[in-house]
Design a protein around this nucleic acid. Structure first.
Lengths: 335, 335
DNA sequence: GAGGTCTGTCGAAGCGCTTCGACGGTGTAT
DNA sequence: ATACACCGTCGAAGCGCTTCGACAGACCTC
């Protein structure tokens, strides 16, 4: 069973090869009757254009690269959500997604770009000083970054507005009358790496808190139960009047709740808790947590949308910040 | 800056195009001096073969498809680990990975296969009665499945030996002198879907338990804290003498521990707990849990290895079961 | 009704690579 | 010396597709 080529379709439909191509691509006007006849032949023969040939002739592979970090300290479920939305959106634009890990480094990017394997790139978890960033500027292929490097000039970046997310948490707690609040963040290693979003959340939180005249502190937080316990305990010792807690660490959310239970702090009676995490984690907790959603699906969608626009030659805004959304559940109350 | 082609390299090195090709592929003997000269030119010009042209001429894209489920009830982190190992292993074989979600269904597979976009497929989370399975048999492209459909004839499947995993847990608890044990499994929806691994774990657990003359029961378990609490409570009411608990639900592991704490059961003094989950989750818990590792990385590695073997025309075993490994930590003790 | 403009279709020229058969040149056996 | 094998290299023929220029015919316009 030799695979069906465009020539087979052309013969079957009684037209020229180029006509079939134009019917399929719509790049030239074709009469309705011819078009129908061709489409019928396509279906009858089960024709699927050969991706390699198409790429070779058109200089477009219709594949984009998705570069995921896959390192310690990442929020895996969020990542997955994100990847899903990238794939789904890409398919809507008739593109497929090549999955790459960051550990091939800049060479990996160069390889797929230079070999014309992909038309464009979406990179996740970009670091403040990322060795891949200078390369991206050189590349012919357009790219979109999730997150912001220190120097974002000449690049297209998308991200949740983490500073706003931190600020929104502080605002919410302020509006409830809390005066002393804290944020528990990512593990230390994430800050060391300079990933950016963690810092920005902290800054937004602290600034907003101070603007409200509150005492607002931000601590990193490891992810094991025992360490979370120790951190929460230390935090309470240093700030006995603490009544509002923001947790920006998906893996630690459950542990923080457990720790508060162990330390005899009821939620929300003694301590209001806001989480920055996906909705399902917040809903699954007990009590269900007031949370700021990380709109992973939206970020992925926007990233692909921007990339497609660039592929078509449009100019796009260099920075796209997605507005965080607070959902009030049962873990926060008036103080 | 036009992209460098093999003709440029040939001219630069003063040889024929075909000679360059043979140097690069090693498919014919080339003298050391010529070979070196060519490689120098390759480096000097920064040559990267065009993937489309290569695929067209050689009928090999050097890309494999990875089909992930991305549905409710999956253990996301495990999935991610798995994906990583697939990508890494594929790269070792000089292949890239195309990421697909299951929601395009069989058509998606047909599309990438018929378009010669990929040379082979790795499918995850195969269901007992999976609509994609019959299609796989028809496809020219080889494939490897993670998990076992009801009818695995003509297919190549890899998986953790979940029945053994369940059994090992029961064995371990038996050896510690426990007489009444239970397994908390996946949410009900997973069983309804007929994913296979969940059932097999339960069966292995129950059979081994009975073989030891123990009372062994298996319950499904939802993933919210409150529902976990209710389930554990109901379980203890029905089996007051219960002293060993196996949790095969990554998302619920933390909640089960919390629930036991709430119900006044100490671990391991009053209740031995074994988890079937990745090591990091077990280590992060308090106390660190005795656990059976799901060797996601290994499964991914094996899957790719088998696929590559099939691509080279070797025949491979139809079923590969990976042996689970019990790591004893601090959550189990003599009864 | 001559000239011009569209429309719809065709043929052919690549795109950059692999691979097959051919062919000098060198080494080995007769 | 002759025959033969083999080694290293070359040239050319595709792989299946897109796209450009050409062109016949239909339709206007003055």
């Amino acid at each position: 069973m030799r695979t069906v080529t465009i020539a087979d379709v052309a013969k079957h439909a009684g037209v020229a090869v180029s006509t079939v191509s134009y019917v399929l691509s719509g790049k030239r006007a074709i009469s309705a009757t011819t078009s129908q006849r061709v489409m019928q032949s396509v279906r009858a023969l089960g024709y699927h254009p050969n991706a390699g040939a198409r790429a070779l002739a058109s200089k477009r592979s219709n594949v984009i690269a998705l570069v995921l970090p896959l390192r310690a300290g990442m929020h895996l479920p969020v990542l997955m959500q994100f990847a899903t939305s990238v794939v789904t959106t890409a398919r809507q634009f008739d593109h497929d997604v090549l999955l790459m890990t960051a550990d091939e480094g800049p060479d990996g990017l160069r390889r797929v770009a230079a070999s014309a394997l992909v038309d464009g790139l979406v990179l996740m978890d970009v670091e403040i000083h990322d060795p891949r960033v200078p390369l991206l500027r050189e590349l012919e292929e357009p790219s979109v970054l999730i997150g912001f490097p220190a120097d974002a000039s000449g690049l297209t970046c998308v991200d949740l507005d983490f500073a706003r997310a931190g600020a929104i948490c502080a605002d919410h707690l302020a509006s409830l009358g809390h005066r002393e609040i804290a944020l528990l963040g990512a593990p230390n290693v994430v800050y060391k790496r300079g990933t950016g979003y963690a810092e920005r959340t902290m800054e937004g939180f602290v600034e907003a808190g101070q603007a409200h005249g509150m005492t607002a502190v931000a601590w990193p937080c490891e992810e094991s139960f025992d360490e979370v316990c120790a951190t929460v305990k230390a935090l309470l010792e240093e700030h006995p009047a603490l009544s509002g807690l923001v947790v920006h660490n998906e893996a630690a959310v459950g542990h923080v709740l457990g720790a508060l239970r162990v330390l005899g702090k009821r939620v929300p009676e003694d301590m209001s808790v806001v989480a920055i995490c996906p909705d399902d984690v917040a809903e699954r907790a007990s009590p269900p947590l007031t949370s700021v959603l990380i709109p992973a699906a939206d970020v992925g969608h926007q990233a692909v949308r921007l990339l497609m626009a660039k592929l078509e030659g449009s100019t796009v805004p260099p920075a796209t910040l997605l507005e965080p959304r607070l959902t009030i559940r049962q873990s926060t109350r008036k103080h």
